[in-house]
Design a protein around this nucleic acid. Structure first.
Ligand code: MN
Ligand code: MN
Ligand code: ZN
Ligand code: ZN
Lengths: 138, 138
DNA sequence: AATACAATGCAACATTGTTGCAAAATATTG
DNA sequence: CAATATTTTGCAACAATGTTGCATTGTATT
C-alpha cells in the first residue's frame, strides 16, 4: 500500500513529500469523497491549510483525483481511476450524496447517460449528482 | 410584469418588500441563472448582503427559485416553473454552464434521464450539470 | 390609527480560498 | 556523498462567501 503511494507520485512526476504521501493515503483509505475540511482534520493539523489546497490542486491537474460539484459550497474530491492522467479526466460515473450521513459516493459502475442538447450547444463534460439515502441510512 | 411579481409574493404568503420585489424582478429579466454576486451588483448596492442571502433562502424554501450545483463553489439560482411550491421542487431539467461566457442555462425542455442505482440507494433528487460551449460562444 | 408581526441593516464573526515570499525539503549533478 | 538547482512548504496577509444576534424599520392586521 505504501509502495502504491510512492509509485503514484513518481508516475505523475511529483516529488515525494510528507503532505502528498499523507493526503494520498487518506484518499486510498477513504470510503467516500473528501472535502478540504475532512483532510485538514484527518491529517491531524499536520500541514498548513495552504499546503492542502495546493496539494489538492496538483492532484486534480495530474488526474489523481477529481472534483464533484455540490450545492453546498464545499468541493469534494475523490480518487480517479487509472485512465485519468495529466488534465485528461475520464470520470464518467455518477455521484451520490447521502442526505443523512453526508457521505459522497463515486458510483463507479453507474455511467452517466448521454444527454442530447439543443442545437448550438457543445458538450465537454456531463456531471450527474444524485441525492437521497445511502444503503447504510436507508 | 410588475403585477406578476406582487402576485408571486402574495401567492407564497410573503410580505411585499422592496428587496423581494427587486430580486424577483432580476430573476424574471435574467437570461441565465444568478449567483449572489450577480444580484448584489445588479441591484446597485441597494440592499445589504445579508438581506440578499436571506431573500434567496426564503425564495428557495418557497419554491420560487432553485439552486444549481456547481464545481466552482458559488451557488447559482434560477426561477422555478409553476409547479414548485413550499419546499417541493419539481425541477427535473438539465443545467448547462458555458466554459466561455460563464452563463448558466436552465434547459427546461431537456429532462433529466432516469438513473438506476445499486440496491439500497434511494433517490431523492437527480442533478445533471453539463459544461461546454453555449450557442453564443460556439 | 394603533398594534402585532416580519424583514432589514449593521456589526461581528466563521469558513473557504488565494497570493507573495522567505525558509525548508527534495531532486539532480558532479 | 556533498554541492547545487529546483520544488515545496509555512507564514502572513488578504479576499470572497456565508452566518448569527439584535435593535430599528417596514409591512400587515385589527
Ligand atoms: Mn467520482
Ligand atoms: Mn434550472
Ligand atoms: Zn448515508
Ligand atoms: Zn457561452
Amino acid at each position: 500500500m505504501h509502495q502504491t503511494i510512492i509509485d503514484t507520485l513518481k508516475r505523475n512526476q511529483l516529488s515525494i513529500t510528507d503532505s502528498r504521501k499523507k493526503i494520498l493515503e487518506l484518499f486510498l483509505h477513504a470510503k467516500g469523497a473528501l472535502a478540504h475540511f475532512d483532510i485538514e482534520h484527518q491529517s491531524g493539523a499536520e500541514f498548513d491549510r495552504v499546503t492542502i489546497y495546493r496539494t489538492l490542486q496538483t492532484f486534480v491537474e495530474k488526474g489523481i483525483i477529481h472534483t464533484i460539484p455540490t450545492a453546498d459550497n464545499s468541493i469534494r474530491y475523490a480518487l480517479c481511476k487509472d485512465d485519468c492522467a495529466n488534465g485528461h479526466h475520464h470520470d464518467d460515473h455518477v455521484h451520490f450524496m447521502c442526505d443523512d450521513c453526508g457521505t459522497t459516493y463515486c458510483l463507479d459502475h453507474v455511467t452517466v447517460p448521454q444527454v442530447s442538447l439543443p442545437n448550438g450547444f457543445t458538450v465537454t463534460q456531463t456531471d450527474v449528482i444524485i441525492s437521497g439515502k445511502c444503503m447504510k441510512c436507508a
